[in-house]
Amino acid sequence: MNIDITEFTANCLKLIDEVANTHQRLVINRGGKPLVEVVPIVDETPKSLFGYMKGTVTIHGDIVAPSGEVWSAESGDEDHFYADLQPHGNDK
Score class of each variant (00 low, 15 high):
30 R>K: 15
34 P>N: 06
73 A>C: 14
20 A>C: 12
58 T>N: 07
62 D>N: 15
22 T>L: 11
75 S>E: 11
37 E>H: 01
25 R>Q: 07
29 N>Q: 11
50 F>C: 00
23 H>Q: 14
85 L>D: 08
40 P>R: 11
21 N>G: 08
65 A>S: 15
55 G>Q: 06
73 A>P: 10
60 H>Y: 06
72 S>N: 12
50 F>N: 05
91 D>F: 02
65 A>C: 02
22 T>K: 15
70 V>M: 15
1 M>Y: 08
43 D>K: 08
15 L>F: 04
34 P>A: 03
38 V>F: 08
69 E>P: 04
76 G>V: 10
20 A>Q: 15
82 Y>G: 01
52 Y>S: 00
26 L>F: 08
52 Y>T: 00
2 N>G: 05
75 S>D: 14
58 T>K: 07
73 A>V: 12
56 T>H: 14
92 K>P: 01
40 P>I: 07
82 Y>P: 07
48 S>H: 04
20 A>K: 15
32 G>F: 07
41 I>R: 14
72 S>K: 11
50 F>R: 03
62 D>C: 09
11 N>Q: 08
61 G>E: 13
12 C>M: 06
84 D>P: 03
66 P>Q: 00
51 G>T: 08
32 G>W: 02
4 D>I: 10
47 K>W: 02
67 S>K: 10
63 I>P: 08
76 G>I: 03
76 G>L: 04
64 V>F: 06
10 A>T: 05
68 G>N: 03
75 S>T: 13
29 N>D: 07
13 L>D: 05
74 E>G: 12
74 E>L: 10
79 D>T: 13
56 T>N: 14
72 S>F: 12
40 P>S: 08
61 G>W: 14
15 L>K: 09
92 K>C: 02
88 H>M: 03
27 V>I: 07
84 D>W: 12
70 V>Y: 15
7 E>R: 13
89 G>W: 12
69 E>V: 14
86 Q>K: 12
83 A>V: 12
51 G>Y: 04
16 I>V: 09
20 A>S: 15
19 V>W: 13
29 N>Y: 09
33 K>C: 02
11 N>R: 05
2 N>P: 08
4 D>N: 06
28 I>Y: 00
18 E>G: 07
3 I>P: 04
38 V>P: 00
65 A>G: 03
27 V>T: 03
14 K>L: 03
84 D>M: 09
49 L>N: 04
43 D>I: 13
58 T>W: 09
1 M>W: 11
88 H>Y: 02
50 F>P: 00
64 V>G: 06
79 D>F: 13
3 I>F: 01
11 N>M: 01
34 P>R: 03
67 S>Y: 05
28 I>V: 14
72 S>P: 06
14 K>M: 04
13 L>A: 12
53 M>C: 01
26 L>W: 07
63 I>Y: 09
31 G>L: 06
92 K>S: 00
29 N>F: 12
23 H>A: 08
77 D>E: 14
65 A>D: 09
58 T>D: 05
34 P>M: 05
71 W>L: 15
38 V>G: 01
71 W>D: 15
82 Y>W: 11
53 M>N: 11
54 K>H: 10
30 R>M: 12
24 Q>K: 15
85 L>A: 11
82 Y>H: 04
67 S>W: 13
55 G>H: 05
47 K>F: 01
88 H>V: 03
18 E>Y: 14
87 P>R: 10
53 M>H: 09
43 D>E: 10
90 N>A: 10
16 I>K: 14
19 V>A: 10
76 G>R: 06
55 G>W: 02
89 G>V: 06
8 F>M: 00
11 N>S: 01
